[in-house]
Simulated scan of single mutants.
Amino acid sequence: MLHRDNKIRQYHTSSAADLIKETMEFYRITQTDLADRLGVSKKNISDILNRKRFINEVLALRIETVMGISSQLLLNLDVNFKLHLAKKTSENSVPQNKSDKFLKRYDWVTA
């Protein structure tokens, strides 16, 4: 049953960078080699692997072609990771259930 006090379980907070790193280690390729194969700069790859930048749709498709990792999986990992970071940041600034803007059900409302 949906209830605002129920917590959503968190399973993991991996980003596309984690999966790309694992694949690079498996195939023993360097950042320079991967950058050359993808047609991007080594700095771009370094920023992605260090989570300073996230992949976009075009790069996800290139990675899928070169590494065989699903572009949809890569993009979903990054979206989930960024959402996790945003939730962490917002939890520190505003209590979730204490806002006066939080939706409330009124007894006088009928469906």
Rank of each mutant, 00 (worst) to 15 (best):
M1W: 05
M1I: 12
L2M: 12
H3K: 04
R4S: 05
R4W: 00
K7D: 03
I8G: 03
Q10V: 10
Q10E: 15
Y11F: 13
Y11C: 05
Y11R: 08
H12I: 14
T13G: 11
S15L: 11
S15M: 12
L19R: 11
L19H: 12
L19V: 10
I20T: 11
K21E: 10
K21L: 03
E22S: 13
E22Y: 01
T23I: 14
T23Y: 05
E25T: 15
F26N: 07
Y27R: 15
Y27G: 01
R28M: 12
Q31L: 11
Q31G: 13
Q31H: 14
T32G: 09
D33V: 14
L34P: 15
L34K: 13
A35P: 04
D36K: 14
R37Q: 13
L38V: 07
L38F: 06
L38K: 13
V40D: 03
K42P: 06
K42F: 06
K43N: 12
K43M: 09
K43Q: 12
N44R: 12
I45Y: 00
I45S: 01
S46P: 02
S46T: 03
S46Q: 03
I48P: 01
L49G: 00
L49Q: 00
L49K: 02
N50L: 06
K52R: 12
R53M: 09
R53K: 14
F54I: 14
N56K: 06
N56R: 05
N56A: 03
N56W: 03
L59W: 02
L59S: 01
A60V: 04
L61N: 11
I63N: 06
I63L: 15
T65E: 07
V66K: 09
V66M: 03
M67E: 13
M67G: 07
M67N: 10
G68S: 06
G68C: 08
G68F: 13
S70Q: 11
S71H: 07
Q72E: 15
Q72R: 08
L74G: 08
L74F: 12
L74I: 15
L75P: 08
N76H: 10
N76I: 03
L77T: 02
D78L: 03
V79T: 04
V79G: 00
V79C: 00
N80G: 10
K82F: 12
K82D: 06
K82R: 14
L83P: 12
H84C: 06
H84R: 15
H84F: 09
H84D: 15
L85W: 10
L85G: 07
A86N: 08
A86P: 00
A86L: 13
K87C: 08
K87R: 13
K87V: 11
T89G: 02
S90L: 09
N92D: 08
S93N: 09
S93C: 05
S93T: 09
S93I: 15
V94P: 00
P95D: 08
P95M: 03
N97P: 01
N97F: 02
K98P: 01
S99H: 04
K101R: 12
R105N: 00
R105E: 00
D107N: 04
D107C: 02
V109D: 02
V109R: 12
T110C: 01
A111K: 15
